[in-house]
């Protein structure tokens, strides 16, 4: 006689994770989030000194990049997801190996690093350092040694005259970068000569808070504290479209494959405690990028939205807030099916 124990497990399969996914890996407000070029990874950095990387489809945290000793203001990953650069308030620019989290190189500057961006060929990195303590705002361009670490000396460096730069990105033309400035100016700089090739002084009326390029880098969207987001032509810097809201904006992103612009913002962080939730307008708002009409809003954050990123294939988007949360929203099927303006032949 044998006494056997049979274990009967009742299994249930869940096909979907709860959505939207709330990523709770930061203790302080988010400063920037970025998808990698495939969109499977989501990088996030925050005022709590940590950089996190997540699986974008289920919100699982893959790992962290530890080392910074101050608010991490900005991150960017190259198109092969090999390298990650991050800029921080500890005056350091770091180069990381994406896959194992190792810090490959550290550049030190006199002031904090506010913005970094890769060029489209992954060869170069541009960074903006803060204007502070007698030091000017400096834009530096580094050439990466892709076999190991970066070069020690900046390839080019220059200081923009006038209002300091807050955001920057490479254009499709080599050696040409776009910058957004504190005064609301948008400018094109030749990094070799350090000269301002073109500018639009009146692109915005207040600080430019974010700048994101279209896939082919021929146009870009900016957000500003002047409560508007705008689409500009990279070549001429002409303002093509304006999206006016009621609150200062912190971020604007372009949705690939759909003619939408996503904008987010809210009352200033310091005023948040004195305003109610509904007053703050902490919503991600979707605008039709050609018709300049608002098409929808997504609520969720209970603080201002600091940064928005859209999945490169346009299937989901993520927003990072002053409240310390990242919310990853996967568009449901109706988003792709619905054609609110009928059948439009719209070039992306």
């Amino acid at each position: 006689m044998l006494l056997s124990h049979i274990l009967v497990g009742v299994l249930r399969t869940m096909l979907l994770v709860d959505r939207p996914i709330l990523l709770q890996g930061h203790e302080r407000s988010l400063t920037q989030i970025k998808f990698n070029s495939e969109g499977d990874l989501l990088f996030s950095c925050s005022k709590d000194h940590i950089i996190n990387v997540w699986f974008s489809h289920n919100g699982e945290r893959l790992g962290t990049y530890d080392g910074h000793n101050g608010t991490v203001w900005t991150i960017d990953a190259d198109s092969q997801s090999r390298f990650l650069v991050s800029g921080s308030a500890d005056n350091e620019l770091r180069l990381w190996n994406v896959s194992d989290g190792k810090c490959l190189y550290v550049w030190e500057f006199p002031t904090a690093v506010k913005r970094v961006a890769f060029s489209d060929d992954d060869e170069r990195v541009v960074c903006i350092t803060e204007q502070r303590m007698g030091h000017q705002c400096v834009i530096r361009v580094f050439k990466l040694n892709r076999d190991g670490d970066g070069t020690t000396q900046p390839e080019h460096m220059f200081s923009p005259i006038g209002s300091k730069a807050t955001v920057c990105a490479f254009t499709y033309t080599p050696n040409l970068i776009i910058t957004g400035h504190e005064s609301g100016k948008i400018a094109l700089f030749d990094v070799v000569t350090g000269t301002e090739v073109l500018n639009n002084e009146r692109a915005h009326m207040d600080v430019v808070t974010d700048l994101q390029l279209s896939a082919d880098r021929s146009y870009f969207v900016t957000s500003s504290k002047d409560k508007t987001a705008r689409i500009h032509d990279t070549k001429t810097l002409r303002v093509l479209k304006t999206f006016a809201t009621e609150t200062p904006l912190n971020s604007a992103a372009l949705a690939p494959n759909k003619p939408y612009v996503l904008v987010g913002g809210g009352q200033e962080a310091m005023q948040v405690t004195t305003t109610s939730l509904r007053q703050g307008k902490f919503e991600t708002r979707f605008w039709h990028k050609v018709f300049e009409e608002e098409v929808g809003r997504v609520k969720g954050h209970f603080g201002p939205i600091n940064t928005i990123a859209v999945h490169p294939t346009g299937t989901s988007y993520a927003s990072g807030g002053e409240d310390g949360f990242i919310r990853v929203h996967h568009f449901d099927e109706s988003y792709f099916r619905v054609k609110p303006y009928g059948d439009l032949q719209l070039e992306d």
Binding site: M1, L2, L3, S4, I6, L7, R12, T13, L15, V17
Partner: peptide
């Protein structure tokens, strides 16, 4: 882009029944 279908299976134990089978 080779689209990679990621199928995620999450097993969740809802109930465990222990039975004694007497032979």
């Amino acid at each position: 882009e080779e689209k990679e279908e990621i199928e995620e299976w999450i097993d969740e134990v809802i109930e465990q029944i222990e039975e004694e089978v007497v032979e």
